[in-house]
Nucleic acid binder design. Structure first.
Length: 878
RNA sequence: GCGGGCGUGGUGGAAUUGGUAGACACGCCAGAUUUAGGUUCUGGUGUCGCAAGGCGUGGGGGUUCAAGUCCCUCCGCCCGCACCA
C-alpha cells in the first residue's frame, strides 16, 4: 500500500462528493457564533476559469478553511457577475440569446470551480442576471431615487455611431470605438446619475479607517476623489456677449493673483459658445479643441493653444488692470468652473501659454533662499511655496498667509451686491452616470409619460423583466426595437407611456452583491439582521484592476443602502480588509513570419532544453526553432495560457493550489512553470509516502501519550508545535508562501525523525512522530484539502478533517530550554553560544568570553564593552 | 509632471521588524538505489581563496556595539493617474 502513488484526480472527486453530501460548507444562521466573511471578487462568466481565478479562489479558500477550523462561522459564497457586453457580442456572433450563452458559461465554470475543491457555500449562489437578483436592484434604485441619491441630467457621452451605443471612457481607444473601430462622437444624452459626490468627503475621510487596505489603493482612491481647497473668484467682464457681466474662476492659488496675466476658458464654456456665435474663427478653434485630446499621446504632445476672444476681465484688486480672456485648449469644462486665471510664473501650463502668446510673466512667489530683487522665471515655473514678491500688500508673506489674506479680502469685497471671493472645496470626483443603451443589463425601473414626466415603477409592479424575444441582428439597443416591451400605461395618469429602455451599468450589479450574499433568498434586497451579523466582509480578495471603480462604487453603495434603510445605519465600509493579489504570468513563445510578425504558440506545443541564457526552444512536432518571449500575463492573444482543467486532470487540484501558494508572495506576480508544478506534485507524493512510513512504525491512532519522552521526541514535539503556531499566523497574515516554506521544513524534520531506527519502545519517539504526522495533515488541510482528507482517513479518523478544529497548541513547547545565539566581536560573527534560554546577561557574557573561538580572536585584549541581548546576540567590542 | 512600489545567490524568494543574510523551493554538481514512464535517497551548492580568512543585500555616504532593515544621496526597474487650475 505504502508504495502506491497517491492518485490525486481520482481521490479528489471522491472527497468533493463527500463534502458536498455532508453540506458542511453552508454558513450557519447561528448569529451567536463569531463570524468571518471571506469573499473573493466574483467572476464574469466569460467561458472558462483561468489561472488568475485559481490563484484568487485558492487564497480565499485557504483562509476560509482555516477560519472554519478556528471555530468561526464562515461565510464563503460564490456567484456570477453575469450582465455585460460580451454576452451581447457573443449573441450577435452566434445568433443566440445572451442568457443562453451566459448560463452555459456559468455551468462550465461552476463545474471547474467545484473541481478545485473550494469550500464554498453553493446554497447562496446567484447570478446578477437572475431576475431574483436584479429585481432587488430595481427596488434599491427606486429607494435611492426617493432619497434623492439619483437624478437625471443631460450630459456629454462617448457615442459609437456604428454600434449605436454609449462607450465608457475605457472603451475609447485613440478616439475610436474599441469594437467597431469607428471614430467616437461626443453626444448630449439625458442619463441617470448616482450622486456619489454627495458622499465625496466621507468616502475620502473614511479611507483613513481602512487600515487593512493596501496603501496604494487608498492613495489611488484619494487621488480619484481629488479634494482641493480653493477660492471661487468672480471677475467682472467688459465687452462680453449677451451682456454677460462676470466670469467665475476656481483657483487653489489665490496667493498668486498679482501674477495673473490672462484669463482662459474651456471651449465648451457657455461664454466661449456665446462668443463663437459671431466669430467663425473662434468657432473653428473651439471645434478643434473638442476634437483633440482623447488619447494619451495627444495630451502629451499637445501644445498649449488659445484664441483671444476680445473679452476683457478686470482684476479683482484693481479694476483698471485689464486681462485678455482666451479660449484655451488645456482648460477643462468639467473641472472647477471651466475657467482659470493664468499665472505664468506659478504654473507650467500657464507659462508655456504665456510664452507662446507673449503675455507678461510676473514672478510673485520667490524661493525662500532666492534674492527677491533678482529672482526671475525662465523656462520653468516656480510652483512651490515661498515668499511673496511683486504683490503689493502681500509682499513678504509666506504662501499660506497670502492665501488667507486674499481669501479674506475678496470675501469682504463686493461685486453686484455679493462677495467677489468665496472659499470653496472642489472635488475631481464626478457623479456616476449609469445609463447604458444595452439589452443585457438591469432595466432601469422608470416610465416616461408625456404628461407626468418621469414616473417610477410602483414597487408592486417590480420586477421589470427583460424580454426574452429580442433580436441581435442589428446594432443598437434591442430593447428600443422591441415591438411591445416598452409600451406601458403611466402608473399615475393611466395614459399610454413608454418604459425607460436604458439598462444600468454593470458596475451597479457588483456594487452590492456582497450584501445580497448575506441573505440571498430574502424577499427584500437585504435582511438587516443578517447583514448586521455578516457585514462587513472580513477579507476581500481580488485584482488591483478594481482599485478605483468597483471598490469606490461599493463603498458608495454601502452608504446609500444604509441611508435607504437596506443596511444597518452605522454600516459604511463594506470591506474591512482588502487584499490585492498579483497576476499569474507565463513565458510566451513565438515564431516569426517573413515580414517579421510574431506567430504566438501555446506552451504545450513548445519543447525547451538547457537553462539560463542557453535555453533553446523548439516546436514539439517538427523540431523547428522557436523564440522565447517575455514573461507576461497569461492572455489569449499571446497564447501563453495554461488551462486549469489540464493541470487538475493530470496533477490534481491540490497540486495547482499548492503551486499557487508557493514561492511568490501573494501580492506579487507568480510565474507559472512546469518545473514548479512538478515540484508541487512531488511534495504531494512525499507526504503520502511519509504517512505510509508513519503507519508502518505502528504507533496506534489511539495511543496514549507516554509518561516520558526521549530528547528526540521532545525536540520533534517542539518543532511541531512551533510550526503549528507559525503556519497559523502566516495564514492569517496571508503570507502563504512563508507557510508553505515552513511546511516543507517541517516535513523534512518529520521525515528525518521517522527514518531514525533508534526509536525504541518507551522512548516516546513513535508517539511523537505520530503526533507530528497528524499535525502536519491538519496544517496542510486548508491548502491541500483533498490530500489532507485522504491522509486523515488513512490515519484512522472516521470524521472529516474539514470539520476538525485547528490543533490546540501546547504553549510550553513553544519555548526551548536552550537557545543558540551568535557571538560577535566588533560586529563580526566569531562564534556561537548554546545556553539556557533563561540565562542572565552576566551568565551569557561569561560563557561567551570563555568560548574558544572568541578568546583566540581577543588575543588576551580586554573587551571595552560587551553588549548582551538575551536570546538574541552577544557583541564584544574591543 | 504627480502618486505608489521595488532592487537580496543561476532562479522564485526567507530574514522573529535593528541582532547568525541567503530559510524553503527550483535548478545544478557528485554519489547510491532503481533503471521505462512528473523515480527515490545521501551529500554539496553566495563569492574570492588550497587554507586561515576576506568580500558580500543596486552605487556612494551617514547613524549605531550592530544596518538587507533607519537617515541622506545617486542609479535602475515596475505600476497607477494624468492639461485637475
Amino acid at each position: 500500500m505504502a508504495n502506491e502513488r497517491y492518485n490525486a484526480p481520482e481521490r479528489e472527486k471522491h472527497w468533493q462528493k463527500v463534502w458536498a453530501d455532508a453540506g458542511i460548507f453552508a454558513a450557519s444562521n447561528d448569529y451567536s457564533k463569531p463570524k468571518c466573511y471571506v469573499l473573493e471578487m466574483f467572476p464574469y462568466p466569460s467561458g472558462r476559469i483561468h489561472m488568475g481565478h485559481v490563484r484568487n479562489y485558492t487564497m480565499g479558500d485557504v483562509l476560509a478553511r482555516y477560519k472554519r477550523a478556528r471555530g468561526f462561522n464562515v461565510l464563503h459564497p460564490m456567484g456570477w457577475d453575469a450582465f455585460g457586453m460580451p454576452a451581447e457580442n457573443a449573441a450577435m456572433e452566434r445568433r443566440t440569446h445572451p442568457g443562453i450563452w451566459t448560463y452555459d458559461n456559468i455551468g462550465t465554470m461552476k463545474a471547474q470551480l467545484k473541481s478545485m475543491g473550494l469550500s464554498l457555500d453553493w446554497s447562496r449562489e446567484f447570478a446578477t442576471c437572475d431576475v431574483n437578483y436584479y429585481r432587488h436592484q430595481q427596488k434599491l434604485f427606486l429607494d435611492f431615487l426617493d432619497k434623492g441619491l439619483i437624478y437625471r441630467k443631460s450630459s456629454k457621452v462617448n457615442w459609437d455611431p456604428v454600434d449605436q451605443t454609449v462607450l465608457a471612457n475605457e472603451q475609447v481607444i485613440d478616439g475610436h470605438g474599441w469594437r467597431s473601430g469607428a471614430p467616437v462622437e461626443q453626444r448630449e444624452l439625458t442619463q441617470w446619475f448616482f450622486k456619489i459626490t454627495a458622499f465625496a468627503d466621507d468616502l475620502l475621510n473614511a479611507l483613513d479607517t481602512l487600515e487593512n487596505w493596501p496603501e496604494k489603493v487608498r492613495t489611488m482612491q484619494a487621488n480619484w476623489i481629488g479634494k482641493s481647497h480653493g477660492l471661487l473668484i468672480r471677475w467682472a467682464l467688459v465687452n462680453a456677449p449677451d451682456g454677460e457681466s462676470e466670469l467665475k474662476v476656481y483657483t487653489t492659488r489665490p496667493d498668486t493673483l498679482f501674477g495673473a496675466s490672462f484669463v482662459a476658458i474651456a471651449a465648451d464654456h457657455p461664454l466661449a459658445k456665446a462668443a463663437a456665435r459671431n466669430n467663425p474663427e473662434l468657432a473653428a478653434f473651439c471645434e478643434e479643441c473638442r476634437r483633440a485630446g482623447t488619447s494619451v499621446a495627444d495630451l502629451e504632445t499637445a501644445e498649449k493653444k488659445g484664441f483671444d476672444t476680445g473679452i476683457i476681465a478686470r482684476h479683482p484688486f484693481d479694476s483698471s488692470w485689464k486681462l485678455p480672456v482666451y479660449v484655451a485648449n488645456f482648460v477643462l469644462m468639467d473641472y472647477g468652473t471651466g475657467a482659470i486665471f493664468g499665472c505664468p510664473a506659478g504654473d507650467q501650463r500657464d507659462l508655456d501659454f504665456a510664452r507662446r502668446y507673449e503675455l507678461p510673466v510676473i514672478p510673485v512667489v520667490a524661493p525662500p533662499d532666492a534674492d527677491p530683487a533678482t529672482f526671475a522665471i525662465g523656462r520653468e515655473a516656480y510652483t512651490a511655496d515661498g515668499v511673496m514678491i511683486n504683490s503689493q500688500f502681500l509682499d513678504g508673506m509666506d504662501t499660506e498667509t497670502a492665501f488667507e489674506t486674499v481669501a479674506n479680502r475678496l470675501s469682504e469685497q463686493q461685486l453686484g451686491g455679493t462677495p467677489v471671493g468665496t472659499r470653496t472645496i472642489n472635488f475631481r470626483l464626478r457623479d456616476w452616470g449609469i445609463s447604458r443603451q444595452r439589452y443585457w443589463g438591469c432595466p432601469i425601473p422608470v416610465i416616461h409619460c408625456e404628461d407626468c414626466g418621469v414616473v417610477p415603477v410602483c414597487d408592486a409592479d417590480l420586477p421589470v423583466v427583460l424580454p426574452d424575444d429580442v433580436t441581435f441582428d442589428n446594432t443598437g439597443n434591442p430593447l428600443d426595437r422591441h415591438p411591445t416591451w416598452a409600451r406601458v400605461d403611466c402608473p399615475q395618469c393611466g395614459k399610454p407611456a413608454r418604459r425607460e429602455t436604458d439598462t444600468m451599468d454593470t458596475f451597479v450589479d457588483s456594487s452590492w452583491y456582497f450584501a445580497r450574499f448575506t441573505s440571498p433568498h430574502a424577499d427584500t434586497p437585504t435582511d438587516i439582521q443578517a447583514a448586521d451579523y455578516w457585514l462587513p466582509v472580513d477579507q476581500y480578495i481580488g485584482g488591483i484592476e478594481h482599485a478605483i471603480l468597483h471598490l469606490l462604487y461599493s463603498r458608495f453603495y454601502a452608504r446609500a443602502m444604509a441611508e435607504a434603510g437596506h443596511l444597518p445605519p452605522d454600516m459604511k465600509e463594506p470591506f474591512s480588509a482588502l487584499f490585492t493579489q498579483g497576476m499569474v504570468v507565463h513565458e510566451c513563445y513565438f515564431q516569426k513570419t517573413e515580414d517579421g510578425k510574431p506567430i504566438w504558440l501555446e506552451p504545450e506545443k513548445v519543447h525547451i532544453e538547457g537553462e539560463g541564457g542557453n535555453r533553446v526552444a523548439t516546436l514539439v512536432e517538427t523540431g523547428d526553432p522557436v523564440c522565447i518571449g517575455d514573461i507576461i500575463k497569461m492572455s489569449k492573444s499571446k497564447k501563453n495560457i495554461v488551462d486549469p482543467d489540464d493541470i487538475i486532470a493530470s496533477y490534481g487540484a491540490d497540486c495547482a493550489r499548492w503551486f499557487m501558494l508557493s514561492d511568490s508572495p501573494p501580492e506579487r506576480d507568480v510565474i507559472w512553470t512546469e518545473a514548479g508544478v512538478a515540484g508541487a506534485s512531488r511534495f504531494i507524493q512525499r507526504i503520502w509516502r511519509l504517512i505510509g512510513i508513519v503507519l508502518e512504525k505502528g504507533c496506534e491512532h489511539s495511543a496514549q501519550k507516554p509518561d516520558t519522552l526521549c530528547d528526540e521526541a521532545l525536540a520533534l514535539r517542539r518543532v511541531a508545535h512551533k510550526t503549528v503556531h507559525q503556519v497559523g499566523q502566516n495564514i492569517e497574515d496571508l503570507r502563504f508562501n512563508v507557510s508553505v516554506a515552513q511546511l516543507y521544513e517541517f516535513v523534512n524534520a518529520v521525515q528525518s525523525a521517522a527514518s531514525q531506527e533508534a526509536s525504541q519502545k518507551g522512548s516516546g519517539l513513535d508517539w511523537a512522530i505520530r503526533e507530528a504526522a497528524e499535525l502536519l495533515i491538519q496544517m496542510i488541510g486548508p491548502m491541500m484539502p483533498h490530500l489532507a482528507e485522504e491522509c486523515w482517513a488513512r490515519l484512522g479518523y472516521n470524521t472529516l478533517l474539514a470539520e476538525h478544529p485547528w490543533p490546540a497548541l501546547e504553549e510550553e513547547l513553544l519555548v526551548d530550554d536552550t537557545i543558540t545565539i551568535a557571538v560577535q566581536v566588533n560586529g563580526k560573527r566569531r562564534g556561537e553560544l548554546t545556553i539556557a534560554t533563561s540565562a542572565s546577561r552576566s551568565e551569557i557574557e561569561t560563557a561567551a568570553l570563555k568560548l574558544e573561538g572568541i578568546s583566540r580572536v581577543l588575543e588576551g585584549k580586554m573587551p571595552k564593552k560587551v553588549i548582551v541581548v538575551p536570546q538574541r546576540i552577544v557583541n564584544i567590542v574591543v
